[in-house]
Nucleic acid binder design. Structure first.
Lengths: 203, 203
DNA sequence: GTCTATAGAAGGATAGAC
DNA sequence: GTCTATCCTTCTATAGAC
């Protein structure tokens, strides 16, 4: 039955997502995924042929999910300051619900840059980022933003948001020792990062 | 001969460092390490017994190397602004020579937080970070730094420095598309990040 | 479509000669 | 200390019954 097939395929996909996120491609085991999905190994191969096919499917889905979260920056009708606040609030909220995602994506891309290329290489970042300069041309007199320092600024914003999750393992040890709760720290970060960036780029 | 033994053990250790950094624990193969060291698998086990022992040795060495680079912040006799500039210059220079290190450390700690705990858990971060407030007490009137926001500020500084290397795989694709050279970007980042932080924390 | 059983390859680890 | 040969387990993948 197609309905049932959909269900099984989804069960497998969801199990694979969890296991790959947790263990990475090389660390994940087909047996672990099968167990988690409540089926046997043979079925995995029936639906996805090989481990690499299964991983590819999961990775593509997750990478799109991750990167699509940057889109609102280029679309929303907000002032630059509102947009920055909006981004940190939304992006960090997203990662609160997907805390393993950043580390997973970053790690797998470093291990195999080729895999992401076909997903990103058709995006014209030069053009995309330039829309920021255009959309906010009327208020840029307030800020130190130029086409030249845009890569620094954009990666700075990304790093402030993503790094705490990617490096969570380390931060939790440091914080635990310092007496800080990670979840509280993350909640605070939504406004701290926004304030920090706005202060830094304002003339 | 002890001299010769030292040489072989070092050859293995160096080969293992490269392979583990590149492939991670689960992705690395003893055969690959042996090939790179120019010896056979059996010798690996003669010197390090198991793959896990070998990894532990490499990881500990690299983690210490990485974290020790943060020490000057707490030791140098510099003004806060000079110290921030010093940190980004030195830390980014260090990673220019060890570009795979941040991603490797972060990833392995996320996969096995326990491994790093015995390395970091005896450090009193509360006390360590407080020394900053003490050392620079006389100039803190200029800055928005308190014991409460110190975790946010410290992790912000770390992220600005570390993230570009950890996420290098992604940034290179974005930059390549944007027409930016990664090495140039990194060189610029030493001063950009310092300026950015100083601007943001200054009252 | 789902299962059991198993093939076949790879990888970590050891035995034993030199 | 270093090598070759090999054991044994683990893992991906497939064959074949239902």
């Amino acid at each position: 039955m197609s309905e049932n097939e959909k269900l099984t395929e989804e069960k497998i996909f969801e199990a694979a997502t969890v296991v790959f996120e947790e263990e990475g491609l090389s660390g994940a085991r087909m047996q672990t995924i099968a167990d988690r999905a409540g089926i046997n190994k043979a079925l995995l191969h029936y639906y996805f042929r090989t481990k690499d096919h299964l991983f590819e499917a999961v990775f593509t889905k997750l990478a799109k999910k991750m990167f699509s979260k940057f889109n609102p920056i280029f679309e929303k009708e907000l002032s630059l300051e509102e947009k920055i606040r909006f981004f940190f609030r939304e992006h960090i909220s997203f990662m609160q619900h997907n805390p393993k995602l950043p580390g997973f994506i970053i790690n797998e891309i470093n291990h195999n840059p080729q895999r992401i290329k076909k997903l990103l290489s058709n995006i014209d970042f030069k053009k995309l980022w330039s829309t920021i300069l255009e959309h906010h041309a009327h208020e840029l007199y307030k800020y130190n933003i130029t086409e030249e320092n845009l890569p620094q600024i954009m990666t700075t914003i990304a790093s402030l948001s993503v790094f705490p999750f990617a490096a969570r393992g380390i931060l939790e040890i440091v914080f635990n020792n310092y007496g800080v709760n990670f979840d509280k720290y993350i909640e605070d970060r939504k406004t701290f990062a926004a304030d920090f960036v706005i202060k830094a780029i304002t003339k």
